[in-house]
């Protein structure tokens, strides 16, 4: 009996310790976000008085409105709204197209192996490890030759090319875990390459599609380097605009608007994670186990 009670107690203590440590880390990570939120809800005068860490005395959403449509970025004063729209215009097609191409690639690499396909796949994987900076120059030349430089289409193109390595890898690992007997049964039933893909594999691919979409969306939405390199004033994505907003100082540093703009800029990826996070873990595991 004593032993059991002791064990129970030590269990309880270790539980409490675990929660304590976790809470400390959670607070540590969430504190900056908290400061951002309260700052974005304060009047600029309140901030100027030096109380950046205290709770706002008068709540106001004016900084959010200003950040969205009135703040001065470079020469224009339309807030980050046009650049937010740019980011959507870049992200949506780039995510979808790279995921679709990736699913086809993954299907071929997993189930229609050809001579040298493993080598081909290995080369494709290099794409996952090449640092962004390395391809800046050749890519800008390529975009120039294609007539896509400084345009939204150029950025879409870059993100698709860069994303295919990752999406192909995700889809291949997912499809490898699907029994080949299923493909063979369909072949005997008379289904061809495309019918097997669309009727048999695609209907079970939702988890991995979610992984790809979240991954690609985070990558593309948060990208700064490609955005700053391959865009101009009117086509820059929201990350670049945010940087310009913070840097284009007038007489006073308007921290509240900066914070609001930053929160707006990270909102889409944050929401995507919250909505479909469970698919992300499930989908990533699907390829790993088995």
């Amino acid at each position: 009996m004593d032993v059991i009670i002791k064990e129970k107690n030590s269990n309880k203590i270790s539980r409490i310790l675990i929660y304590l440590v976790l809470s400390i880390f959670a607070i540590y990570f969430l504190l900056p976000v908290f400061v951002m939120i309260i700052t974005s809800l304060k009047d600029i005068n309140e901030i100027k008085n030096g109380n950046i860490l205290s709770m706002p005395q008068h709540f106001t959403i004016q900084p959010w409105i200003d950040a969205w449509q009135n703040a001065r970025i470079g020469a224009s004063a339309h807030g980050i709204k046009p650049y937010f729209i740019n980011s959507i215009m870049i992200t949506v097609p780039a995510v979808l197209i790279s995921s679709i191409i990736g699913s086809f690639n993954g299907y071929v690499f997993a189930k229609w192996k050809f001579k040298g396909s493993d080598l081909f796949f290995a080369f494709l994987l290099f794409g996952c490890f090449i640092p962004f900076q390395v391809i800046l120059l050749p890519m800008s030349q390529t975009l120039g030759k294609l007539g896509l430089s400084q345009s939204v289409f150029g950025l879409i193109f870059v993100h698709i090319v860069y994303g295919i390595s990752f999406t192909s890898l995700f889809f291949r690992n997912f499809y490898v875990s699907i029994p080949t007997e299923l493909i063979n049964a369909a072949k005997i039933d008379g289904a061809g390459f495309f019918r097997i893909f669309f009727k048999i594999l695609l209907p079970v691919s939702l988890p991995i599609f979610m992984v790809c979409i979240i991954w690609q969306m985070t990558q593309i939405w948060n990208d700064f380097l490609f955005g700053v390199t391959f865009s101009d004033v009117s086509t820059q994505p929201v990350t670049v605009a945010l940087n310009n907003l913070v840097n284009s100082t007038s007489s006073v540093k308007r921290y509240n608007i900066d914070m609001a703009a930053a929160l707006i800029a990270v909102a889409p990826t944050l929401i995507a994670y919250i909505v479909s996070g469970k698919y992300f873990v499930k989908g990533l595991m699907a390829g790993a186990v088995k």
Binding site: L182, N184, K187, P203
Partner: peptide
């Protein structure tokens, strides 16, 4: 001949039923 032209049917170890 391709599998579908061989007038055959196959039953697999894992049954290979289309899950969807």
């Amino acid at each position: 001949a391709s599998p579908k032209d061989r007038e055959l049917a196959m039953v697999f170890q894992s049954y290979a039923l289309y899950p969807n």
